[in-house]
């Protein structure tokens, strides 16, 4: 049975090949001394050198990371509050209304979010640049954090809170000693999702970025529009490696959380 490749396997293999070809194509030609994405001439690290010598690009990478970390942090705090707010609301209709509002930004196409935020920031007199990009990244990351945290809250038995209060815990104690430890896996998942949303976003940022400020995806877009330059390939290789590190990091964090919180993790 092992020797023969059956057709279902073949189908899966073809899907995986198609999924990964473009990625490895990019990585492969980042080492091409020929300067094009065809006809591999020889191995070179020239393009990587170019990336590391490009101060403007490095500043953009730094900006992107700062925006991602800050927006993930702030949206996680806001999202946890949102999840708690939804959790504590007793009326069913209010709960459903809040959830509907929460999901609007998740299902909206990026152009709509971008265009409406552009109008919003212009009307509010916020200068397009760092602040507007940060605010919009926080705004579109909040709902996903809520969606990651809320199931954990609902999984938690309400008797835990009652027990804590019976034993004389204050509201603050209940929050920090009972609720937050229980929903930590959800908070971490939400934080990582917010991080990836921010790193991945192009369309919304493109609308609200203005002239002076740029993030990585906006920069890649403007470079790709000018045609092929292998420093973009080198850059994408570096991003790919960074992404894999993030995935591994996320995997270990979630594994550890599952072990620490035996009752929290379902699987």
């Amino acid at each position: 049975m092992k020797r023969k490749i059956k057709w279902p396997h073949l189908y899966l293999i073809i899907v995986f090949i198609i999924l990964y070809t473009p990625i490895f194509y990019l990585l492969f030609y980042s080492f091409n001394s020929g300067g094009t994405m065809h006809d591999f001439e020889g191995f070179t690290l020239e393009w990587y050198k170019e990336v590391f010598q490009d101060t403007r690009l490095l500043i953009i990478v730094l900006n992107t990371l700062i925006i991602a970390l800050l927006s993930a942090l702030i949206s996680t705090i806001l999202g946890v509050m949102g999840a708690l707010a939804i959790y504590y609301v007793k009326k069913r209709q209010v709960k459903n209304a809040l959830l509907t509002f929460n999901n609007v930004l998740i299902v909206s196409p990026d152009v709509i979010i971008g265009a409406s935020f552009l109008i919003l920031f212009t009307m509010a007199g916020i200068k397009l640049g760092f602040t507007s990009v940060l605010l919009s990244h926080i705004a579109f990351s909040v709902p996903i954090v809520v969606l990651m945290v809320l199931p954990k809250l609902q999984e938690m038995s309400p008797t835990l809170i009652d027990a804590a209060r019976d034993l004389g815990a204050s509201q603050w104690d209940v929050l920090t000693k009972v609720i937050l430890p229980f929903i930590t896996p959800g908070i971490f998942a939400g934080f990582f999702m917010a991080l990836t949303y921010s790193l991945d976003d192009f369309a919304v940022t493109f609308f609200v970025t203005g002239n002076g400020f740029s993030t990585l995806s906006v920069e890649i877009y403007s470079r790709a529009r000018q045609g092929i330059s292998l420093s973009v390939n080198a850059l994408s290789t570096l991003i790919f490696l960074f992404t894999i590190l993030l995935v591994i990091g996320y995997y270990f964090v979630s594994q550890r959380n599952n072990r620490l919180n035996g009752m929290g993790g379902r699987k």
Binding site: T196, I220, G227, I228, S236, I239
Partner: peptide, 15 residues
Amino acid sequence: TWINLLLKAYAFLGI
């Protein structure tokens, strides 16, 4: 899906 959409689009410019 964790890799930026633009990079994937850019790869197809080459392919």
